[in-house]
Nucleic acid binder design. Sequence first.
RNA 1: GGCGGCGUAGCCAAGUGGAAAGGCAAGGGACUGCAAAUCCCUGAUUCACCGGUUCGAAUCCGGUCGCCGCCUCCA
Length: 486
Amino acid sequence: MRLYNTLTRQLEAFEPSDGNTLGLYVCGPTVYDRLHIGNVRPILVFDAFRRYVQAFHGWKAIYVQNITDVDDKLIDRANQIGESVGEVAARFTEAYFDLLRRLDVLLPDHSPKATEHIDEMVDLIKRLVERGAAYAVDGDVYFRIDSQPEYGRLSGRQLDEQEAGSRVEMSSLKENPLDFTLWKAAKPGEPSWPSPWGEGRPGWHTECVVMSRKYLGRRLDIHAGGSDLIFPHHENEIAQAQAAFDEPFFRFWLHNGMLSFQGEKMSKSLGNFAYAQDVVERYGSRTVRYFYLSRHYRKPLDYSEDGLRAAQAAVERIATLVADVDGERIEPAGEQQPLGANAAAFVDRLQALREKYVLAMEDDFNTVGAIGAVQEIVGEVNRFRATAREADRATLPQAIELVLELASPLGILAGGEPETSDASGSTEPQLVELLIELRDTLRERKLFDLADEIRDRLDGLGIAIKDTPQGALWRRVAAERQSNES
RNA sequence: GGCGGCGUAGCCAAGUGGAAAGGCAAGGGACUGCAAAUCCCUGAUUCACCGGUUCGAAUCCGGUCGCCGCCUCCA
């Protein structure tokens, strides 16, 4: 597959460096608050990426996502609400994992915390000082960017041009204003760890260098994150990794575009943002995932309620088809039976659309084109259902299998397992069936008032009934749907 | 000042040299006791604008206008 590599500014063929195993490092959250809708984009995009390469290439991605649990923002927050940094970090770390579950993403293979890797970070900084790539001043340690001729390559910057008009804070302690902090001396009351330079805490960029090497080893295949991290964060990671180890850091750098909030820049101070958790609660993970994956990952994405509602309707269309065909309980076609001409042509069209899906995904992970192919399949299947001869309907189960296969990496359909947790031991299904039988009798006797009342009242309980030639079908309507109908 | 992105039907959005995907919304029709779902029909002679290259451009080149992000913590 081809991926756009920020490092080279072009599409490049991607293969794992180690057989069928690849390393994928995605910059994780600083746990000083709940995640907002922008934080969640890389999580959803690279979760889909991970699932896709597993399912369609057989590549196992070792997925590492760090948790930054000590930094300035956390300290500010802790002081503000009168808790310890540890308490704040613990609370929002829990909220982060809860969100991952609600979003239905595969959990990372490793979720290393900064505070659990202090020693390794100190070792790295020591090494940089020994090699002349860093210098200590008054308990701080700074990285000397002038030691790296390649500095600025990732972000395409020339250092001398940076200074004019930039808002880089001048610090008399730094040799070069762009030198960045590796170790920060602690002020009284701040969390701190011992080091050769005194009590303090590590700078942010260092943790990703330490953790990626520790958990991925030689498999430095893909490093991903939001495009706002290209400079300085990722630039600084590369600088210190290469200064310390004299070898290339990651091969591929992938960056997702930023979110805007209803046409405006996202800004907490202006209230132009939404918490991811609230959005998932209102719309559900399928709709949220569809919304994010409906836009190419490198382009900016504008969050809007209209967009979410459109995504919701689109997800419903797919889910409805799957639920309807499942409800019909069609016997799958046997291997031996020859297909009629119509059914054979139908199967061919489905295969062509599967190919379209794969080609889109292979081309810089174009989930938008892939979703288009899925929707085209839904249209094909609906059309076929409306017109096919009875015998040809036996091809429908395999068509649904295809929809499930293609929807699965995107996470836009419920998985194979039943969604309901209360299903076990509940008599609800039988009770609904009973009501439906009664209603059928009423309809036969043309007592439509009563039949409609049953339908309306079940609807009020979140159970939707629809009458089809094969009999009445029912299903639970997601709570998210009801709360958003206006 | 530097780096980068965007402008495709009412809305969202793929496509980036060879007949304008897809979704949402809207209108008409079919089916239905009524619904719901579904199907059929209706949409861009055109891809911000102006030039150029080409047999051929939404796609390449030059310019203009408009919008946005990053360069400071930021996914």
